[in-house]
Write a protein that binds this DNA or RNA. Sequence first.
DNA 1: ACCTGAACACCGTTCAAGT
DNA 2: ACCTGAACACCGTTCAAGT
Lengths: 204, 204
Amino acid sequence: MARPKVPRLSADRIADAAIELIDSGAPFGVNALARSLGVTPSSLYNHIDGRDGIIELVRGRLGRRYLPELPTGTWDEIVVETMQGMRRLYAEHPAIVPLLVGKTITDDAVIESYDVLATALVDGGFPDDEVLSVVAVLDSFALGFGLDYASPDDIWQPGTPTRSLGRLIATAERGDARSDRVFELGLELVLDALRLRLARLRDD
Amino acid sequence: MARPKVPRLSADRIADAAIELIDSGAPFGVNALARSLGVTPSSLYNHIDGRDGIIELVRGRLGRRYLPELPTGTWDEIVVETMQGMRRLYAEHPAIVPLLVGKTITDDAVIESYDVLATALVDGGFPDDEVLSVVAVLDSFALGFGLDYASPDDIWQPGTPTRSLGRLIATAERGDARSDRVFELGLELVLDALRLRLARLRDD
DNA sequence: ACCTGAACACCGTTCAAGT
DNA sequence: ACCTGAACACCGTTCAAGT
């Protein structure tokens, strides 16, 4: 044992195992991750920067897989492409969403993707002092929707009679179908609104 | 010690202490909460249903404080009022947001508030099979924005040069001013879009 | 009914020791 | 350089014992 000739671990291997563990539905933890890699928890610390470091690795690895690298087209096409990438990422790996929440983004590929978005909006004609807010709005959207994919089927569990909610829940779609619909509606809404805003800005 | 004549704890007292603890910026935990109450961790279990139970108590207590009970007016006024309530809640208690994420909502007052929203949309003319999606979109918005309040000032930390992001970040507002601006923009966008959608529905 | 204190299984992290 | 095993401080939860 001790040090093997060829390393058993690497940052990428750890990130992949982490993704698999998270997707399996098991609670994410350093110990469980080590076990799934057939290794001792302390071994991981030769390759990664603690629990949070692993999560940031996961963000980067999935970002590279799902986010468009250098999309072309009009600003709204780029928005759609990026948002769809996020949607697919969150839909296919819902359990990672709560883990990403509230952690600073440092991964280059993910930063790059936000930069693409920001540049597209600047080029599209949005004023400088508004672009970052629009990006943040889009990011808030995406994350909020991502959480919808991660949510239990019954986000709301009314204990007392309701005027509308109970009836609507009873007839509503469930699972991914519902989440897809919510995302489509949300994206449509926000794009309509952004186009409207840009048109108004041009009129002034 | 042992059993005091007048109980030292109650669900409400625990919830209030939890809110205080979370707001203080300290990491939330059962042990820390018990310490802040001058009590043993195991004592709490006479009153609450585990860690998650405490969080749901917190959600309810804050919901009652910030969400409008029976707002009146047009559907879009009700949407604004509810969203502003959520904004104030999240802005004044940002650290709770990540704790609420992905947990089923059972508290009556909070459910009631979503019911008000749903009813307003139904009355406003949105079709039944769309109302729950709109509510979910609004909820996703609010939560996403809430996370913005909870986020570190530097959500993005570019390690390599960027085309637009770095420059925009350098000149951007920070802290609550930025979050407020993002929220205002987002709410404006989504309301514009919803009004547009309703108008189109009426034309068909 | 309500609190304490001991006990449990588990968590993330550090570090000396081994090759 | 890379892994192990022991150790650490901490976590949420259970439960018998005390009033």
